[in-house]
Amino acid sequence: MTSSGKIVSLDAALSVVQNGMTLGIGGWIFHGQPMALVRGLIRKGVRDLTLVPAPGSIAPDMLIGAGCVTTTACVFISFEHLGLAPNFRRAVQSGAIKVLEMDGPGIAGGLRAGACDLPYGLIPDLGTDLPRVNPEGYRRARTQDGDRPLLEVPAIKPDVVFLHGQQADQEGNVQYFGASYFDLLMAQAAKHVICLVDRIVPSSAVRQSARLTKIPSAFVNAVVVSPFGAHPGASSGLYEQDEAHLAAYVAASRDQATFDAYIASHVRDTAGEDGYQDRIGARTLAQLSGGEAGR
């Protein structure tokens, strides 16, 4: 059987990402953060990105801290019980990056419009301050008497999106063992879709569990395989988030100098993802895969 050619190296996949592009990031908080792609982008030295992250944590935070970003949409960027997103927080408070403030309806309506080739989506006006601080992102819509107040949100069509699933086949069908959040909607809205997976499985394995295929191959331009590629975030059913590493990341992010040292030791000076896995250590990675036994 001939290969679809969609499974490519990290470097080959990232060759499409250029300075100044709009980059969508899938997942949800500590789940499905496409970290191997994020680390690859930092090694590549891409700059001036506009980010459109689904509610996330370390993926947008690391790109912002590493200086790859000039503007980011913010629906929700948080380290939950580990605190506020440290580099995002510092960059916004110092004025280093611009924030396009968004909410759930804004990104949902914008992505849907993008996926449907409509100029904008219609969402309810919920009485918030969002239109005040992001007037281009929330425009008052014309309504008829008796309608509730509505807003127009412009279509979101990222140049590239980064997603993370658990496994894919040679065709590029991407399977999820847990929730897939906004990932399919992002793939539908984007011009180019790069999916990171922890492993490649035979087509027969995908067919046995077709309900797990959340991103069918027609929506996928490239698949990058990198075991533990979502570390220090979680990969549903395969490994848990690395709480100790995330806490150490937050601590290292207390100022730019200490964060730069983290990026040097964990991203720039590692020989790609192999070097990153060596840096984290087999024992740590094994424990994260150990389920109840790993705790």
Binding site: F76, I77, Q93, G95, D103, G104, L130
Partner: peptide, 14 residues
């Protein structure tokens, strides 16, 4: 230019 930047709105508005 916030004194403290929080996580954001997500579904709270809706």
């Amino acid at each position: 230019r916030p004194k403290l930047r929080g996580p954001g709105t997500v579904g709270i508005s809706a």
